[in-house]
Amino acid sequence: MAKTILIVDDSASLRQVVGIALKGAGYEVIEACDGRDALSKLDGRKFHLIISDVNMPNMDGISFVKAAKQLPAYKFTPVIMLTTEAGEGKKAEGQAAGAKAWVVKPFQPAQMLAAVAKLILP
C-alpha cells in the first residue's frame, strides 16, 4: 500500500513539481492550496505525512498544523514545514505547534524526496 502524502502550498507550480517527484518515487500525493483547503481534505483519509508551507492565504501553515494535530487521526502524523531562511521566528512557532521537520525554500525536488524518505519510505 503506497504511503499517501498531503502537500499544502499556495503555489500550484510548487505542488505540481513536488507531486511529480513524489509520485515518481512511489508515493500517493494529494494537493491542497491552503490550510483551510488542507483541513477539509483530512477527513476520511489517512495521510502518512503532511508537507505544508507556512505563509499561505486563508489559513497559514502553523494554524493548519495546530488544527490537524487536534484531530486524533493526525495527532502523530509527521509534518514537514516549508520555510525561508528568514523564518526563524515562524520556526519556533511551528515547532511549538508540532512541526519538527523543516525544509528551507527554495529546494530542489531531490532535496524534498530525501526529506520525505527520512520520515517515511514509499
Binding site: 503555489s11 507550480s13 510548487l14 513536488v18 505563509n55 525561508t84 527554495p106 529546494f107 530542489q108
Partner: peptide, 27 residues
C-alpha cells in the same frame, strides 16, 4: 512579501537559479 517568497520557492524547484538569486535579494 508572499509574492516574492512564492516565486522564489517555485523557481528554485525548477532550478531557475537566476530568478532565485534575484528574488532572494528582493525578499
Amino acid at each position: 512579501f508572499r509574492a516574492a517568497h512564492t516565486i522564489k520557492g517555485s523557481a528554485g524547484l525548477f532550478g531557475l537559479d537566476h530568478v532565485v538569486s534575484f528574488t532572494h535579494n528582493a525578499e
